[in-house]
């Protein structure tokens, strides 16, 4: 298969324009994805920040779940930021069925509280990634636990895991698309083959 664009940004709702902007700054060919037809044109997918409840309902309503899972099983890289992380998680707690369920992580939604508790802070990246990253957390989820095949990419202090990687998947509970530091975008783009 030959795909026209390196990255597709899921554009059903949320901060997709912000992701597109950073991708254009790092000269990465990208397009907005709203349908199955769009999905067939991209090598990888970013699921942006937004309202996870809304994005979850819309990917179902627009019949995007099966096509995304199909591409994922062929190895398509996917990165979820905040709401996108929730879409990727296998376990959202007992009352909440998973949306895509591709990553072996347990996540608690809105775990830091309401908007007044949203915050920004410097986070520690794993040793290969250099300086701390300035991260913005908006009504952010917490990664409660991770499976054995999941790697920790970033933490707040020693304890809270806020970015993880598993196979071709990347998930962050914060929003690199709200800052002008492209390191996470570059890291994701490096996963794309061919």
């Amino acid at each position: 298969m030959s795909f026209q664009f390196d990255v597709g940004v899921l554009a059903v709702q949320g901060s997709f324009a912000e992701h597109m902007q950073i991708l254009s700054e790092i000269n990465c060919p990208a397009m907005e994805v709203r349908s199955q037809k769009d999905l067939e044109q991209v090598k990888s997918l970013i699921i942006p920040g937004g309202e996870s409840t809304t994005i979850g309902k819309l990917v179902r309503r627009f019949d995007l779940i099966e096509p995304i899972l199909g591409r994922a099983s062929e190895g398509m890289p996917i990165w979820g930021t905040c709401a996108g992380l929730i879409c990727l998680a296998k376990d959202l707690g007992p009352s909440d069925p998973p949306i895509l369920g591709l990553m072996d992580i347990k996540v608690q939604r809105n775990a830091y509280g309401r908007q007044i508790d949203s915050f920004e802070t410097a986070i520690e990246l794993d040793s290969t990634q250099g300086d701390p990253f300035h991260a913005v957390f908006i009504r952010a989820p917490i990664i409660v636990s991770i499976g054995p095949n999941v790697e920790v990419v970033a933490t707040i202090g020693q304890n809270s895991i806020v970015a993880v990687e598993q196979d071709q998947y990347l998930a962050t509970s914060f929003h690199p698309e709200l800052t002008d530091d492209p390191r996470f975008h570059l890291r994701f783009v490096s996963k794309i083959k061919g």
């Binding site: 949320g14 912000e18 915050f119 802070t121 908006i138 202090g157 020693q158 929003h175």
Partner: peptide
């Protein structure tokens, strides 16, 4: 961890929620 290190109610956090509501 967040209380000791995070800064709340900043301009970026306030405008950021609106950015998450887009579309």
């Amino acid at each position: 961890g967040k209380d000791s290190t995070g800064e709340t109610a900043t301009w970026r956090v306030k405008t950021g929620l609106a950015q998450m509501l887009k579309g």
